[in-house]
Computed example of a mutant assay.
Amino acid sequence: MDSLNNIDFKSLASKQTSIQMKMRFLALAHFQDGHSCTQIAKYLKVSRTSVNKWIQVFLKEGLDGLREKPRTGRPSFLSHQEKQQLAKYIEESAAKPDGGRLTGHDIHDYITQTFGKAYHPDYIYILLKKMGFSWITSRSKHPKQCDKIQEDFKKIQNRNDP
C-alpha cells in the first residue's frame, strides 16, 4: 500500500487527462495538507461522501483503487449488425433520385418491422445521433424538377435588380 506522505498528489493531478482522476488526486492532496473532508468537499464542489469514499479507497487499496473501473450498462437494443443494416437503409433512402426524405416515424417503423424491436419514437433521434447521423432535413426535390429551367429563371432580370 502507498503511504499518504510519500506521494505528490498535486503533480499526479496535473498529469491526468480524466477530470474524475484530477478531482480524486486533488482531494487527497488537500487531505494530505490536513484539511477536513467537509472543507475539501466545499473547495472542490463535490459531496463530502465522495471525498470520504476516495480517501477510504486510497487508504485500503492505494493508487490502483482510485482508477476508473469498467462500467456496465444496459446493452443496446440493436446489435452492431442491425445498426449497420439501419445505416445502410438510411443512406440508400437518402440517395434515391426522388428525394428519399425519411422521417423519424419512417425509421421507427423500419426498426419495428425489420428487427422487431420497439424503441420510443423520441429515442430514434438520439439513436441516429449515436450512429453518427445528424437530423438536418433538406428541401425535398420534386421528381419533375429541371435544373436547366431553374438556372434560366434565375437569369431573368427583375425590375428591382440593379
Rank of each mutant, 00 (worst) to 15 (best):
T49M: 10
T49P: 00
S50M: 13
S50T: 11
V51W: 03
V51K: 00
V51M: 01
N52V: 11
K53N: 12
W54A: 00
I55M: 03
Q56I: 15
F58C: 06
L59D: 00
L59Q: 11
L59S: 08
K60Y: 07
K60N: 15
K60D: 11
E61P: 04
G62W: 07
G62F: 07
D64Q: 13
D64K: 13
G65F: 00
G65R: 03
L66A: 06
L66T: 06
R67M: 06
E68K: 12
E68M: 08
P70W: 01
T72F: 08
T72P: 04
T72E: 10
T72R: 11
G73M: 09
G73P: 03
R74P: 05
R74M: 11
P75K: 12
S76T: 14
S76M: 05
L78S: 04
L78Q: 00
H80D: 07
Q81S: 08
Q81A: 10
K83E: 09
K83P: 09
K83I: 02
K83R: 09
Q84L: 04
L86T: 02
K88N: 06
K88F: 05
Y89N: 00
E91D: 08
E92F: 02
S93Y: 07
A94F: 07
A94M: 03
K96R: 15
K96S: 14
P97F: 09
P97W: 15
P97K: 15
D98M: 05
R101M: 15
R101E: 12
L102Q: 08
L102A: 11
T103G: 04
G104A: 09
H105Q: 14
H105C: 06
H105I: 14
H108L: 15
H108C: 05
D109A: 13
Y110W: 11
Y110S: 00
T112G: 05
T112V: 14
T112Q: 15
T112H: 12
Q113N: 13
Q113R: 13
Q113C: 07
F115L: 00
G116F: 06
G116N: 10
K117H: 14
A118S: 14
A118W: 12
Y119L: 08
Y119S: 10
Y119M: 10
Y119D: 04
Y119P: 15
H120S: 09
H120L: 07
H120C: 12
P121F: 07
D122S: 09
Y123C: 06
I124E: 03
I124A: 03
L128T: 09
L128E: 06
L128P: 09
K129Q: 11
K130F: 04
M131P: 13
M131S: 03
M131N: 05
M131K: 00
G132M: 04
G132A: 03
F133H: 10
F133K: 06
F133S: 06
S134Q: 13
S134N: 13
W135T: 14
T137Y: 11
S138T: 15
R139F: 04
